[in-house]
Design a binder for these strands. Structure first.
Lengths: 247, 247
DNA sequence: CGAACCCTTGACAGAAATCAACTAAGGTGG
DNA sequence: CCACCTTAGTTGATTTCTGTCAAGGGTTCG
């Protein structure tokens, strides 16, 4: 594993406060690997063996049942996923696949469980991380239940804009079909709904999003930190959530 | 607070492994209180001051946005809720109200945060509890996205049945309108969908549910532990989930 | 160049929300 | 004890939303 990878992992909220000795030991059992695009990393139902950390590229978390599939999140660097399954030593609830060529760090789940039992700082970091993940999914569920398709799309676009500091023009970072699945609708429906949103202040041409009337758009879906998440203003992009979003 | 209350709280997975001294201290700052039916205990957006433990009665967790409301969970004794908000010292994502007369234990969030920083066992319990909550919400979100109304209802009824050891006859434990909201549909739609489920092996008359053809019902919605949760076989009832479900 | 694949559009079918009316059950107060 | 009121639940008619099926345009990549 590259030394600068280690430094980056060390800076993650999950790992930054633990004792160096414990961090080093955790990383000793871990290994980094590069995967091609479109590879299935994890299949839902499998036992949770490794905590995954995305170093480069992006990973889709998705779920399936009876032949249907839906995207649950897109994880982008640098963040972890499937933490909860590792902790519970339980089957993964979601599958994962690379959206593009990606480099991942795999940390054995057993090491993880051993370490937070003896490193209180790491335990606290884990608690904070999980609490954040939990709240992210609750917000997602609230969006699904309280908003219709058009509203979810508008809120999604507004969130993207806000994460870029309120930009009126920006590019979508993931495929539309994936956005559709993440927002709980079909690609056709997304396409039509996007078109219909022109009358409330957004125009989407290909990947290019232009907010033509911010006030009108804000009036159409009043952003709510209890659904859309707190103002990040940072560089978080895509459908991913602030940090690790999957357990 | 009653001594037998203390014993019951002490037996919760969240509290059972911590040092007695720490438990006692936590409980010293806590207080129990009885609330009438229909009282709003928590309003979403308010700062998280207390971890709530339901000792008796039941509590609905719900969310609202722009005049719309939806039920997120029903919490029944003995379990905790809004753990995650307390940990993050962040605003509640959900509101809470008593469905019936209920007795609650309120534990100051600041005490909570202080204690798991110095009691590793409690930290581990908190981690496990949160991981469980996270997975419960992920399962709920999966159900919403991967199943249609009829399937969600059928799965819900099957889950109730299984939690009673596979009973073919049982009573609904919560109001239908609440079930409808929990499952993400209108009461009218629930009513009609229930009626239409007669042709796949369930009959519902008032509160009474009768599974007339278990095989057919199982074929209609193949239960999936990654959505419906692991087989409990226990006495868990209502729309509530195994343990604390709200952070 | 051809083969995928994504995205879009149209036509249609099915699902779900809405509006309105009606029933039934439970609780209140006379 | 009964009349009354409130509320949950149901049913019907209708509209709106969403998914499905099919076709075509555009792009990327081998």
């Amino acid at each position: 594993m590259r030394p600068d990878d280690l430094a980056e992992v060390r800076h993650l909220p999950l790992f930054r406060d633990m004792l160096k000795a414990n961090f080093d030991q955790l990383m000793q059992g871990a290994y980094a690997q590069t995967f091609p695009a479109g590879l299935e990393l994890i299949r839902q139902g499998d036992p949770a063996d490794f905590l995954h950390v995305v170093m480069e590229g992006s990973v889709e978390l998705y779920a399936h049942w009876e032949g249907r599939i839906c995207t649950m999140a897109v994880v982008q660097p640098v963040s972890t996923f499937i933490l909860a399954a590792c902790i519970k030593d339980a089957p993964y609830l979601m599958s994962a696949r690379t959206l593009e060529r990606a480099r991942l760090l795999l940390v054995p789940a057993s090491d993880l469980r051993a370490v937070f039992r003896r490193d209180p700082e790491f335990a606290v970091s884990t608690i904070t991380e999980l609490a954040g993940c939990y709240r992210a999914v609750v917000r997602h569920a609230k969006g699904l239940k309280l908003r219709n398709s058009r509203e979810r799309i508008a809120a999604y676009l507004l969130k993207q804009s806000r994460s870029l500091g309120g930009a009126a023009r920006f590019s979508l970072t993931v495929e539309k079909r994936l956005i559709a699945s993440y927002l709980g609708m079909t690609p056709e429906n997304l396409s039509r709904a996007i078109r219909s949103l022109e009358e409330v202040g957004v125009q989407v041409k290909g990947q290019q999003v232009t907010i033509t009337d911010m006030a009108q758009l804000l009036a159409f879906v009043p952003p709510d930190p209890l659904i859309d998440g707190p103002d990040t203003g940072g560089a978080t992009a895509g459908v991913s959530l602030p940090q690790g979003v999957a357990g």
